[in-house]
């Protein structure tokens, strides 16, 4: 194991942002770290990159317990590189940005050129070596930040939402960079993402973090709302004025729910059976393949992510912008808190 976490906690202002019972991360594998906003993903990456010290618990790196003193952490940081969600490049040339990590590692000057050229080639940015780093676009900055990290030849590359806020072209380029690192460098890569189809495309291994804790399954379609109960055996979560989601019975006034994307029925308007009462009307805004299933995002006033069988998709002939009816199965809805 490259990382082994036991009873790791991180407190901020008395709140446990990360509270992990056990988590083992294998060397040479690529992991997708998923979870809703505020789940503790960035905090966990900061701990794994030795930039942040956990409040409690034991962290092992290459099967050796980590001693949290600055000298030791500085040494460990040379094996792990973190690329921030919004990476920043030093106000100098692209070449000098990548050279910094090599200088820190006292790499001989005659070897630096080759390493920098190879790192730039990997992210297809060779022509930018002499460019002023401050003039690069968001996507180019991410790619140079990845090249800068990879030039350090780390054992672990940590990427915090590497494709967030990028256009499709830049996103695909960064995804290709990650894929190449995964396939060619054989290092451990852990990347945060909200995009489950991206996680599926790039890796088979997932770490799901919710409220700082590791979960077996990823909860999607997470919403907060007030509980509404028209009678004693019917409970709903009111997301907004028009959207009521059926939920299991609860004694709370406000709840956070997750809706399993595979437990949502979607039917094209024309095919709606008269005896089925569908609760919400919406339009398809996104369609994509995810392994052998189809992922759709349906806008019913809020975006709902749906995972459907390919046969259902084929039989309905769904297209982007199609008007559809959807219904939530009560057993696909979980109260998270």
């Amino acid at each position: 194991m490259i990382y082994s976490l036991k009873h790791i906690k991180k407190n901020y202002n008395g709140r446990n942002v990360v509270d992990i019972e056990t988590l083992d991360i294998e060397a040479g594998c690529t992991y997708a770290l998923s979870g809703p906003n505020g789940a503790g993903k960035t905090t966990l990456l900061n701990i794994l990159s030795f930039l942040s010290i956990p409040s409690a618990g034991q962290l092992s790196f290459f099967n050796a317990p980590v001693v949290f003193n600055e000298k030791n952490l500085r040494q460990l940081r040379k094996s792990v590189t973190l690329v921030d969600q919004h990476p920043i490049l030093f106000s100098t040339s692209v070449y000098k940005n990548i050279e910094f990590g090599l200088k820190v590692r006292k790499t001989p000057k005659n070897k630096r050129n080759d390493i920098i050229a190879s790192a730039l080639k990997m992210v297809d940015m060779t022509a930018f070596a002499d460019a002023d780093a401050r003039t690069l676009s968001g996507g180019e900055t991410r790619r140079i930040a990845i090249a800068r990290a990879m030039a350090c030849s780390p054992d672990v590359l940590l990427l915090d939402e590497p494709t967030a806020d990028l256009d499709i072209e830049s996103r695909l380029t960064v995804e290709n960079n990650v894929r190449e690192i995964r396939d060619q460098k054989k290092i451990t890569v852990i990347f945060c993402t909200h995009d489950l189809s991206q996680a599926s495309r790039l890796t088979d291994k997932k770490i799901v973090l919710i409220n700082g804790q590791v979960h077996d399954i990823y909860h999607e379609n997470i919403f907060k709302g007030a509980v509404f109960s028209p009678n004693t055996d019917e409970y709903y979560c009111r997301i907004n004025e028009n959207i009521l989601i059926p939920v299991p019975s609860t004694d709370k006034d406000k709840i956070k729910i997750s809706i399993h994307p595979g437990m949502i029925t979607v039917v094209g308007r024309k095919k709606t059976a008269p005896d089925i009462s569908f609760s919400h009307k919406g339009r398809i805004t996104h369609l994509g393949m995810e392994k052998d299933k189809i992922r759709a995002v349906i806008d019913i006033g809020i975006p709902i992510s749906v995972l459907m069988e390919k046969s259902d998709y084929d039989s309905n002939g769904f297209r982007i912008n199609d008007a559809v009816d959807i219904d939530f199965k009560r057993n696909g809805i979980k109260i998270l808190g």
């Binding site: 930039l51 973190l82 921030d84 919004h86 820190v104 350090c152």
Partner: peptide
């Protein structure tokens, strides 16, 4: 983020200070 970036690239306190002052 300059400080954080310098640290994650393995910089020691003097190298980190150099980046920040630059």
């Amino acid at each position: 983020r300059y400080r954080k970036t310098a640290l994650t690239l393995g910089a020691n306190p003097i190298q980190t200070a150099g980046i920040i002052l630059t």
